[in-house]
Nucleic acid binder design. Structure first.
Length: 565
DNA sequence: AATATATGTGCCC
DNA sequence: TGGGCACCCTATAT
């Protein structure tokens, strides 16, 4: 047992007398009074206070002269000081005033009054009417984007859950990918290393492959040339090529051939991407190294290259969609880096993009590949408007709540691959908002050219945070991973027009699921998952989950201006 | 309904 | 450079 710290040894409920003073004599009273004032410096208290406190308690109980009241003094759960409280009041979270703003990390105000919350685009420099005279830029723009279309209208932003699977995974979801050709298939990875294949139009048609990885499936990518295979990278140190039909996986590499030799030597794979032009799969580990796997021979080629600080995680890799020679990496060393694939060696990065904290993700824009979008643990989304322009500093920094929490999958801002203007981005939100008395964590759609919150979507049935989000490459569909559950969102209008009513079923989750269970008295769902899932090598097909077409989940898709107070 | 628990990052020494 | 510890909105099982 670790030695108790002084702080924790303090009783949270302070016992005080109604009638003060009299024989109190001991130092304890003084302390109580101090507490009353501002909670002053508990630091000045004597070390033995705990026992003394108990003693006195007994004393006063036995005497019975002075009635005892236990006053629930305001004790802040965050800073442990008295005089104020932090935490949830109903569905509203009150910040500790002693801490810097939880949203923007600046001191002097709390989240409630943070200018970035009151006006989401606060401090964001809008996209300038660019008039660059760089010839390369001109050529690039003319070739690819003769006219820059407007961003997608709001109504095609998915805003309503129309199906979801309950606890499809037995651990939290870590990554999602849509199938490149089959519009209804969603792949999902989880912390346990399992890979899910879900036909979300048939809702209950899902398959889970549980014998591919031993722990966290960090990243996966489908092969667009052969859409039946997916490449996966895991913290177990292996990368695999998986056949989606059979679940048969081929190990491409194993960074821990000698098994567990202690935490300092165990290697894990994080970043992963496919470079079709070069016919390679790129993966990166937690020691800062990049590995190249030849897609034909399924062998690692060349030596690992240190591309980020030695010993630091390389969490993301992304190949430029148009320029096969360009690679973007990001990692725990607070950098995102652009590389030329033709001359990959340590220190040879073309550009280093510094961040204040860990970079959770870095992506080129999906259509032109000319923008860069990063998500960093400093609660900022950064945008570089053109890789052909100056990359000295980001074009915009958008403050957004997506803090690091060890129990959550890292948040990543994801492009909408269908948005011709390459300005619509989706990302889950950490801090909750009070929506009619419920604390919900919305999924935000942000126009990264202005920083404006275009839409915030949530569902009263989804009370958990949704750090993992992916937009469909062709349809107006959003997939979200929230804790162990997966959700599919569609725009209300579209969904209502296209789907016959009896297909508009909502699969309940979380609390609503439990309620439904009681209501229908069914015990047989995929909740007993662990049994099935742990059977190595077996696919688990679960039965039909709870369907409830009556409880239409409502979610709002509103512009930021109508936002609370 | 209180509590245990898993276990990443930053920062300090 | 490395161990130790703190840590603000978790989710879930008991």
């Amino acid at each position: 047992m670790p030695p108790q710290t002084r702080r924790t040894s303090f009783p949270k409920v302070v016992i005080e007398r109604d009638t003060d003073s009299e024989e109190s004599s001991s130092d304890e009273d003084e302390i109580d009074e101090e507490d009353d004032v501002v909670g002053e410096e508990e630091v000045t208290e004597p070390k033995a206070d705990e026992e003394e406190g108990e003693e006195e308690q007994e004393k006063s109980v036995t005497k019975k002269k002075t009635p005892i009241t236990i006053s629930l003094k305001k004790v802040c759960k965050v800073c442990k000081r008295t005089g104020h409280e932090a935490g949830f009041k109903g569905a509203t979270y009150i910040d500790c005033p002693m801490k810097p703003c939880f949203l923007c990390k600046m001191p002097g105000h709390t989240t409630m009054t943070c200018p970035h919350r009151v006006a989401t685009e606060y401090g964001v420099v809008p996209a300038p009417r660019r008039n660059t005279h760089r010839s390369l830029d001109y050529v690039f723009q003319r070739q690819l984007r003769p006219h820059i279309p407007k961003m997608k209208p709001e109504f095609v932003i998915p805003d309503q859950v129309n199906c979801a699977v309950i606890r499809y995974h037995s651990r939290r979801v870590t990554c999602l990918e849509f199938h490149p050709t089959n519009d209804n298939i969603l792949l999902s990875g989880d912390k346990k290393g399992q890979l899910g294949v879900w036909d979300f139009c048939k809702v209950y048609e899902k398959t889970v492959y549980s014998d591919i990885h031993g722990c966290i499936l960090n990243n996966m990518k489908l092969n667009p040339r052969n859409d039946g295979t997916v490449y996966t990278g895991s913290s177990d140190g292996t990368a695999c090529c998986v056949d989606l039909e059979t679940g048969i996986s081929l190990s491409l590499m194993n960074l821990n051939p000698n098994g567990w030799q202690g935490p300092s030597t165990w290697r894990m794979l994080y970043g992963l991407d496919i470079n079709l032009d070069k016919g390679v799969v790129l993966v990166a580990d937690n020691f800062g190294c990049l590995y190249t796997v030849d897609m034909r021979s399924n062998n690692v080629t060349g030596k690992p290259i240190l591309i980020h600080k030695k010993g630091s995680k390389v969490v993301g890799l992304h190949c430029n969609p148009l320029q096969p020679d360009l690679l973007l990496s990001c990692g725990n060393d607070h950098f995102a880096r652009i590389w030329d694939m033709r001359q990959l060696e340590t220190g040879s990065s073309l550009v280093d993009l510094p961040h204040k904290r860990v970079v959770n993700s870095a992506y080129f824009s999906p259509l032109t590949g000319s923008k860069i979008l990063t998500t960093s643990q400093d609660n900022r989304i950064r945008v570089w408007d053109s890789i052909f322009g100056s990359l000295d500093s980001p074009s915009r920094e958008i403050v957004h709540s997506h803090d690091f929490n060890r129990h959550l999958t890292a948040f990543r801002a994801e492009w909408d691959p269908k948005d011709q203007s390459e300005s619509l981005v989706v990302i889950g939100r950490y801090i909750s908002e009070n929506y009619n008395g419920a604390a919900l964590h919305p999924i935000d759609f942000i126009d990264i050219s202005t920083g404006q919150l275009v839409a915030e979507i949530m569902d009263p049935n989804i009370t958990t945070i949704s750090p993992v989000n992916k937009l469909h490459p062709r349809d107006d569909i959003l997939a979200s991973g929230s804790s162990r559950s997966l959700f599919i969102w569609r725009p209300k209008e579209k969904h209502e027009i296209e789907k016959p009513i009896d297909e508009r079923k909502i699969v309940l989750c979380g609390k609503a699921e439990k309620k439904a269970k009681r209501k229908f008295g069914d015990e047989s769902d995929c909740d007993s998952d662990d049994d099935g899932f742990t059977t190595k090598g077996k696919t688990v097909k679960s039965k039909q989950p709870y369907l409830d077409s009556t409880s239409t989940s409502k979610s709002k898709s509103k512009s930021k201006s109508s936002k609370k107070h």
